[in-house]
Amino acid sequence: MKPFTYQRPFTVQEALHSIRNTPGSIFLAGGTNLVDMMKLEVINPSVLIDINQLPLNKIEPLPNGGIQIGSLVRNSDLGFHPLIRKNYPVLSQAVLSGASPQLRNMATVGGNLMQKTRCSYYRDEISPCSKRNPGSGCSALKGYHAEHAILGTSSSCIATHPSDMCVALSALEAIIHIESEKEKRKIAASEFHLLPGNSPEKETVLEPYEIIVMIELPPLPPNTTSCYIKVSHRALYEFALSSAAVVLEWEGEKIKQGRIALGGVAAKPWRCFQAERLLENSLPDEKLFRSCAETALQGAEPQKENQYKVELTKQVICKALSTAFKRSV
């Protein structure tokens, strides 16, 4: 770990002022990911701005029936919050399927949005990796990539986005609230993360002088069901090989509209917009679910060792849709 100095602001404005005026600075929230990266010397900030004192740790209902989640809410508090469990079970399931209880107790919602990939070549300090060292190439393409992405990749990066939570946020059409010293802005969860393209080092729309303050969950109609299905080798404490968050809004026996997002298989939390169109005003059955799955994976570009993810993800989508369907009856 490289030497660094440490600051601890108490207000958002103070934090924003510090980050803009301190070269080499970075926000420290739960630290479960950043401190790892610092130990590996993949991220080498010269100043840590510890934002844990900022008043951003509340989960509160909104007048429109939605919920706002402060960016410093711990993953455990989010996952076990009664309102989240009742109104947004897919989010609770996703958050609690990730990491370990110890990590979830520390990790924050904002930090989860900023989580780095688990790609070993990104973490090993020495292999070529365009995400870590722009323009150096992708070692995973020729190397080991059994856990890598099959959707949204580019020739400069095939890493997956590792988060479970963000997959659910995407399916829930959450809104990320961002602030800088000068302005406040909002962005849809599915637009927060960027595809790698030629610049995989740029992972989100967040600018270095901005901070995530809050995540807003829009209200869901009462006749909505949802679920999160995650597949990994181990029962727990492993990143998803493939996962799906599904939100279905019902009108009688028909699906009025549905949303599907995938995790563990794409460069970012992956919304399946085309597949979702098939769900609109449809009667649910296995055939429909399967054609959604086929549509969702149409653009998949697997590598040699991760071809299994195509069929696995189709099965995960079918399982998630049929589980959400069962919850409607």
């Binding site: 688990r118 070993s120 292999s127 181990r234 029962a235 727990l236 404490y237 492993e238 990143f239």
Partner: peptide, 18 residues
């Protein structure tokens, strides 16, 4: 020739839930 999964997150051993 370098080990790719040289940590306990990527080198999988059973956890209690397994």
């Amino acid at each position: 020739g370098r080990v790719v999964n040289d940590n306990l997150s990527d080198y999988l051993i059973p956890v209690m839930a397994d």
